[in-house]
């Protein structure tokens, strides 16, 4: 039994990819959950907001690269991120003013906002296509690996290699910083608490002197920032293709609901739960089993489901969680 090699393979193919993917999902789900908690609808345009933000980041990255500006070992996209966030926040605030505000003032039923978000989704989808087209782009530059397979093998003497791509490490670091900042904001600052108060009880918040429009503006800005960051990290880690950002909406919604809609902590837990399950269920375990139990010779790949069905995993988790805990893992607002 070769535990060390098994561990290395596990880290390399399951843990690190799942952690990075989980962080991306968590950031996406945080945006969805905040909008759900405060604006009280599930934003179908969130995936396309991510795509738009990422498209702007890519364009600015290209511009910076053309000007010869780079961040050395870090991807240039990091430098472009603030521009992407600013552009996305502007677009989202504009959308709010042009579309959502009207219904909010009228106290319209939230389902109308859901429908409106479908319209916004179409528009943003078109804008992203106009902006950057439908092709697939890779825009990571700088140092590719923090640990590469060859160095690791030489260092450890193990036959199995371990790679940590810089985009994966970057994803985790950025996600941790963003999450800490967000939780500090929500739990420690007056504005953040005002947002939570508004989410809990709109009327009482108003009577306490909290300006609803300011809360809504802050929510959109935060949601746009989270969407752009999540989208950029996802694009750096994998690649950018507008349609993929629409598809990622399903696991993001699943993560948000599994964690309990409206609950930021739940969104993070949900993101990692969905990501780890997806990777674990679609990973061929044959190699790891081979190290741990060499006497056992499995006939197949020991893969529970093909990777094509990773969406099914988030769906099954969702159903199971809802069957046993209808409010989500952490108590959400939706029960």
């Amino acid at each position: 039994m070769d535990f060390l090699n098994a561990l290395v393979v596990f880290l390399n193919f399951v843990f690190i990819p799942a952690a990075a993917y989980g962080a991306q999902l968590a950031l996406g789900a945080l945006g969805v959950t905040l909008v759900y908690g405060i604006l009280r609808f599930s934003n179908f345009a969130h995936g396309d907001t991510m795509a738009f933000g990422t498209a702007v980041v890519i364009l600015v990255t290209w511009g910076l690269q053309a000007m010869g500006i780079s961040l050395g070992p870090l991807p240039t996209a990091l430098l472009a991120l603030p521009f992407g966030i600013a552009a996305t926040a502007m677009l989202v605030l504009l959308t709010d003013k042009a579309v959502y505000k009207f219904y909010r003032v009228k106290k319209a039923a939230p389902i109308i906002l859901v429908m409106a978000s479908v319209g916004v989704m179409f528009v943003m989808n078109g804008l992203t296509r106009l902006l950057i087209g439908v092709s697939e782009y890779r825009f990571d530059d700088g140092e590719r690996f923090i640990i590469n397979v060859r160095d690791f093998r030489e260092w450890s003497g193990l036959p199995e290699g371990l790679a940590l791509r810089s985009t994966q490490a970057l994803t985790l670091v950025v996600a941790v910083i963003v999450v800490i900042a967000l939780f500090y904001f929500l739990n420690r600052t007056k504005s953040g608490k005002a947002m939570r108060a508004y989410s809990d009880n709109e009327d009482l918040a108003l009577l306490s002197g909290i300006d609803p429009e300011r809360v809504v503006r802050m929510t959109w800005i935060i949601a746009a920032s989270l969407a752009t960051i999540a989208g950029t990290l996802y694009g750096l880690d994998k690649s950018f293709k507008a349609f993929n950002y629409f598809q990622i909406l399903m696991p993001i919604f699943a993560a948000a609901i599994v964690g309990g809609l409206g609950n930021p902590l739940g969104a993070i837990a949900g993101g990692f739960l969905v990501a780890f399950s997806e990777v674990a269920v679609t990973y061929p375990w044959v190699k790891i089993v081979g190290y741990i139990a060499p006497w056992y010779e499995p006939s197949g790949l020991m893969q529970l489901l093909g990777t094509e069905y990773k969406f099914a995993v988030s769906f099954v988790i969702l159903i199971v969680v809802l069957l046993f805990r209808p409010t989500g893992l952490f108590r959400g607002k939706s029960a």
Binding site: V114, A254, E308, Y309, F311, A312, I319, P326
Partner: peptide, 27 residues
């Protein structure tokens, strides 16, 4: 499944099942 839960989760459930059926057909 989705209509039997304490409150409906039909939207997310159908979103998921739609993706899955198409994935089955593709693969």
């Amino acid at each position: 499944v989705a209509l039997g839960l304490r409150s409906d989760y039909l939207a997310i459930a159908t979103l998921g099942i739609g993706e899955i059926i198409v994935a089955v057909m593709k693969n």
